[in-house]
Design a protein around this nucleic acid. Structure first.
Lengths: 143, 143
DNA sequence: AACAAAGTGCTTATTGGTGAATATGAACAT
DNA sequence: ATGTTCATATTCACCAATAAGCACTTTGTT
């Protein structure tokens, strides 16, 4: 289970340390893609192949399907964690998520998310995540 | 699995570098043809025969289907990657996809797509990929 | 035959990815 | 407090991938 919040920084070449506590669960090789709300998603191999299988079934003739597949697959990269625990974030993904240096990495159960740190702070301070709203959603889900 | 987004440029003779990360999957010889949404499609030998098979199943009695088949087959060319990792894009295909110099190559699972870079940027900034639509599709696919 | 256009191949410079070495800093034990 | 260990940060050097320019070959045209 991928959990926790970590802050790290990109090096000059755009590499990032994978927090030691996430390393085991995410695996040595994993996939990052463009995510929602301006962050990047990171999936373990298992989660990803699942997802790929589903994408493959979508029809080429349907424009919505093409758009969706393009978004995820064109935005995807396989990453490998090096001996020093770092991995490279492709430049187009860095650009997409507007990452300069300071980055937040968070575990979200089945995936990780990588955020520009400022954006993450801001996102957290917004009303989208007021305790009330969350509580409401919890009751909706029957928790 | 063909994934990722790469930006490269045509040389004076209309040749293009095949990004190193796609080379293995697409194979030394592959097929490019006119694609949908103004780009070119590129298939590995295997995927191409696959695709041909699917086209063959379409009813020749239906004009739409005939048009569809002609569209893909008439534009198809075999490409070979040279020692320096480049391949030539036939001039009629370059013209079809309105390629001048700057080009985006993307991996979309079973095929690659080659876009005029500007067109690709524009396509990405359009609403075809609103966050809402993506989120919706994600839940549909159970992610 | 002469020329132009298109295609092929080589050579060089530059960029960006990769790996190694070292430094910093926190957590913990003595 | 002091030393030890582990995780993270930073820097440097090297190598592979790509860009760009040029020259040669082939093909088709006049």
């Amino acid at each position: 289970m991928l959990i926790g919040e970590y802050e790290h920084s990109l090096d000059a070449k755009g590499r990032l340390i994978m927090p030691a506590k996430l390393r085991e669960d995410i695996g040595e090789k994993f996939i990052i893609t463009k995510g929602l709300d301006g962050c990047l998603f990171g999936f373990s191999q298992n989660e990803w192949t699942n997802f790929e299988e589903k994408l493959k079934t979508l029809p080429l003739t349907n424009k919505n399907a093409r758009d969706f597949v393009r978004f995820f697959l064109s935005g995807a990269t396989e990453c490998e964690i090096d001996k020093q625990g770092r991995f490279l974030i492709a430049s187009n993904l860095r650009e997409y998520a507007e990452m300069e240096k300071e980055v937040a990495i968070i575990g979200v159960g089945t995936r990780i998310e990588i955020w520009n740190k400022e954006k993450w702070k801001k996102y957290n301070s917004d009303e989208n995540i007021s305790a009330d709203a969350i509580a409401e959603n919890m009751t909706m889900l029957g928790i």
